[in-house]
Simulated scan of single mutants.
Amino acid sequence: MSARSERQGKVQTVLGLVDPAELGPTLMHEHVFIDLTPPPLRLSPPPVQEEEINLCNCFGIAYGQKPFMRNYRLDETEVAIAELMEMKAAGGRALVDLTVGGLNPEPDRLVEVARATGVHLVMGCGHYVNDYQHPANHARSADDFAREMIEQITVGAWGTKVRAGIIGEIGCQAPWTDTEKRVMDGAITAMQETGAALNVHPGRDADQPMEVVGFIRARGQALDRVVISHIDRTIFDDERLLRLADTGCLIEFDLFGWEQTAYPAADIDMPNDGMRLRMVKQLVDRGHRDQVLISHDICTRTRLGRYGGHGYQHIFANIVPRMLRRGFTQDDVDTLLVKTPRRLLSFQ
């Protein structure tokens, strides 16, 4: 039996292959462990010892008013277990961790958390945006990146025997760099060789998702297993949104819980959850229901319940009931959180 046929029709979690029917409601874009510290700051420790996040400082830190280096790191196993147990109590059963190269992936710790919680954890593979990548990557070929990602899915990732179950989030920025294009080229090859789905982190430019989609399509890859993340911080007009949906790619609104206007990474006005639901409903009403995903993309401490945030439980505890009050059917909800994730995470 080939490596591909062994996985066909199965979902590969950090604990091994499972039947897709076992997944249940799934968050498709999260981080359980991550180091998102901006590269220029990684070699410079904070000038003073930082206190932990508390009720007195969490708003200022989350809003970007108060610099706080530890906010960039999710590195506490006990906190991760507690947060995922809250998600499970609210109805969530599975989560995709897209912490890839440059963000300090922790495969063995994901295994520990999966065993402790009973939550199905699926791990991503590949590399994040240009500036987070190891300097050696800038001299590597697309074929070399492809071989690495195929091995991360079939053998083990980041020096462990833990295998990835999806490709990405593959980092892009605007303008798109040559290194990032080679990583994406390798990711497309890895898709075609393994049957895994692909998650893309697009640059912060409204036209970059279409640029990435054109690149992928030009290399002969169908778009029905390609997820374009972070749409809720990237596209703000209906014309672009619907044009992207018409390509057949998956559109991911993955910043649920981000209710504040401020977005430290760019000078934009972020939508709140009500606005996100209106965009999702528009796509559902236009016949694109099977192309929509929702998640939180938790990647900083202030978004965890322990530190004053909403946690992984938010969509299940708060957004799903609101969806049902806003004209979504139960089948709509099941499609976004169960059926579409199940299809994408099953190897072709």
Rank of each mutant, 00 (worst) to 15 (best):
R4K: 15
Q8R: 14
V14E: 07
V18E: 11
L23K: 07
L23W: 09
P25T: 06
P25A: 11
F33R: 05
D35W: 07
Q49R: 05
I53K: 03
N57M: 01
C58D: 03
F68C: 12
N71L: 11
D75W: 00
M87P: 08
M87I: 05
A90F: 10
G92L: 00
L98D: 07
G101F: 08
D108W: 06
E112G: 00
V113S: 07
R115D: 07
A116N: 12
H138N: 11
A142Q: 09
E148K: 15
G156N: 02
W158M: 02
K161C: 10
R163H: 02
A164T: 04
G171I: 12
C172G: 03
P175I: 00
D185T: 06
D185C: 11
A187S: 11
I188G: 01
A190K: 05
A197T: 01
L198G: 06
N199F: 04
H201Q: 00
H201E: 04
D207A: 10
G214W: 01
L223T: 01
I231C: 02
T234G: 00
D237P: 06
R243S: 13
A245C: 01
T247A: 02
C249I: 02
E259P: 03
Q260E: 12
A265D: 14
Q282W: 03
Q282P: 00
V284Q: 01
G287W: 08
D290V: 04
D290M: 05
I294A: 10
C299V: 11
T302W: 04
G305N: 15
G305K: 14
Q313D: 14
G327P: 06
D331S: 12
D332H: 12
D332R: 02
V333W: 10
L336E: 09
L336Y: 14
P341W: 10
R342I: 06
